[in-house]
């Protein structure tokens, strides 16, 4: 599904990532963990096309997508969410999700201005699909509320609904549990599993170890910009290097 090989990222002399390689299998939930400053978010920004790496390649479904802009990646089936949710605050919740269906529709400037019959039926389809995703994430009752006015936890769900509307093959989530209370986190865990059940590959950066250990099929551990370990949650929990990195070298 996703293959990352030899990614190195240098910011003005500081090496944020060094020769990171891994691959992610279709249908897995993969967690990327590591102490603060390990380079997790940088890695996400590179994979999702927001940064361009200094060297290395990203392959999506065996196609080299290194250096492609995010809008191109979305069309290739990869979408992401942000650590500090990026909602369209001036629009309603429903409209937010409808934006996610942009790539699923094609009426141009002229057709939209003239409200041609096909653009009207397209609009109806967009609305129906958007409502479906709101239902999937459990926030249907907020459909007509302005997105700027909903709680952080609901905003998180909205961001996920919006990303799912793109109908991605793979979704990257940057710290989806950050800022959520424990009940919301539990709901999120179930939601992520349901997303996987739709056949969507999930990759998440996360600090909440309970959540990660609970739902992830595989884990990737970064430390100081390098890959430290990779394996099942069980293997990672028993990995001495990982324990040392998290707790500091005690011995």
């Amino acid at each position: 599904m996703l293959e990352v090989s030899g990614i190195t990222q240098i910011f003005g002399g500081v090496t944020a990532l060094e020769d990171v390689s891994f691959s992610i299998k279709k249908g897995d939930i993969t967690g990327v963990i590591g102490p603060n400053g390990a380079g997790k978010t940088t890695l996400f920004n590179i994979i999702s096309g927001i940064y361009t790496q200094s060297s290395g390649h990203v392959l999506l479904n065996n196609v080299d997508v290194s250096g492609q802009p995010p809008e191109k990646l979305a069309r290739l089936g990869m979408v992401r969410t942000f650590q500090n949710i990026e909602l369209f605050g001036g629009m309603t919740v429903l409209e937010n999700v409808m934006v996610g269906l942009h790539t699923k529709s094609s009426s141009g400037l002229l057709a939209c201005s003239l409200r041609m019959p096909w653009s009207r039926s397209e609009e109806l389809n967009i609305r129906t699909a958007a409502l479906k995703w709101l239902e999937f994430t459990g926030i249907s009752e907020l459909a007509e509320v302005t997105a700027g006015n909903i709680s952080f936890g609901k905003g998180r769900l909205l961001e996920i609904a919006r990303a799912l509307a793109v109908e991605p093959g793979i979704i990257l989530m940057d710290e989806p549990a950050a800022g959520l209370n424990s009940r919301e986190t539990l709901g999120l865990a179930r939601l992520i599993q349901r997303i996987r059940d739709l056949g969507i590959t999930v990759v998440l950066v996360e600090h909440d170890m309970d959540l990660v250990m609970d739902i992830c099929d595989r884990l990737l551990v970064l430390n100081l910009g390098r890959k430290l370990a990779e394996g099942t949650p069980q293997e990672i929990q028993e990995n001495r290097e990982v324990i040392a990195a998290y707790l500091g070298d005690a011995d």
Binding site: P70, E71, E86, F88, R162
Partner: peptide, 15 residues
Amino acid sequence: RAVHDSEVAAQVLGI
């Protein structure tokens, strides 16, 4: 309006 509110989020959604 999406681009106006958050350009990066709009791009990530394929705009």
